[in-house]
Amino acid sequence: MKTLLSISFSLLLATQALASEQAALELQQHLSQLQGFQAQFEQTVIDADGVEIHQAEGKLSLARPAKLNWQQVAPEQDMIVSDGSTIWYYSPFVEQVTIMDASEAINQSPFILLADNRSESWQNYQVEKREQGYLVSSKLDPMQAAFWVKLNSDNSIARFDIIESTGQRSEFKLEGFKANPQFEPRLFHFEIPANTMIDDQR
């Protein structure tokens, strides 16, 4: 009986691993048609009890590999910029910029995988088809935020959510989606303003 249960459990794990691998391949194939995109976003943060606690809006640009320009315009004017190797998080309200290694940011949240097709960036994540979208979560850290993305029929991105281990959820609805635009290279590099406090965490 124990041998039979062991075999059944092993088959279940193998089936789940295969489904995850197929879902990951399918998602990456969809995203491979996007070398980059621009869109406006509306963010809604909902706590674990289902209560809306925050709203924000802004615009974002992503380009492969792992390049990002994220500008929140309301209620604060925060900015996140990545050139693929370095990430700058700038808060003009407190006049501070935090500098991080881009690979570490991927390890903290799989959101940046939308603009990263490198196998080494995906290897620590599992993918599951869920709720007409794809749920991406860490294989190594159950406390790390998961990421859910919904695609339209033309492979444009309709919405994505960042789901914290606490149950809090940030929903991002995209409007004005533009696939594969021509980007100015300077869009993905941040020039630190004068008199800004620097927190370099690299």
Rank of each mutant, 00 (worst) to 15 (best):
E57I: 13
E57K: 15
G58M: 06
G58V: 07
G58F: 06
G58W: 06
L60W: 00
L62I: 12
L62V: 13
L62T: 03
P65S: 14
P65D: 10
A66H: 05
A66W: 05
K67F: 10
N69P: 02
N69Q: 09
Q72L: 12
V73G: 06
V73M: 11
A74E: 13
A74K: 14
P75M: 08
E76S: 13
E76Y: 13
Q77I: 14
Q77H: 15
D78R: 03
M79L: 15
M79P: 07
M79E: 15
I80S: 00
S82M: 01
D83V: 11
D83C: 12
G84Q: 05
G84N: 08
S85N: 11
S85R: 10
T86L: 13
T86H: 10
I87K: 04
I87V: 15
I87L: 15
S91Q: 10
S91Y: 04
P92Y: 08
P92C: 08
F93Q: 12
F93N: 11
V94R: 11
V94G: 10
V94K: 11
E95F: 10
Q96G: 08
Q96V: 08
Q96W: 06
Q96Y: 09
V97F: 08
V97G: 05
T98N: 12
T98G: 07
T98R: 09
I99H: 03
M100Y: 14
D101Q: 09
D101Y: 05
A102R: 03
A102E: 07
A102D: 08
S103R: 04
S103D: 08
E104V: 10
E104M: 11
E104W: 06
I106D: 00
N107V: 13
Q108T: 01
P110D: 07
P110G: 07
P110F: 02
F111W: 09
F111Y: 08
L113Y: 07
L113V: 08
L113N: 06
L113P: 04
A115M: 04
D116R: 06
S119C: 12
S119K: 14
E120D: 15
S121E: 00
W122A: 04
Q123S: 12
N124L: 12
Y125A: 03
Q126V: 15
V127T: 05
E128V: 14
K129H: 11
K129M: 13
R130K: 14
E131D: 13
Q132D: 13
Q132I: 05
Q132Y: 05
Q132S: 12
G133I: 02
Y134H: 07
Y134Q: 06
L135S: 02
L135H: 02
L135V: 01
V136C: 05
S137E: 01
S137K: 02
S138M: 03
D141P: 00
D141A: 03
P142E: 01
M143F: 10
M143A: 14
Q144V: 04
Q144L: 08
A145D: 05
A145Q: 04
A146D: 01
F147D: 01
F147K: 00
F147W: 04
W148C: 01
W148E: 01
V149Q: 00
K150S: 10
L151E: 05
N152K: 14
S153Q: 14
D154P: 03
N155C: 13
S156Q: 06
S156A: 09
I157C: 10
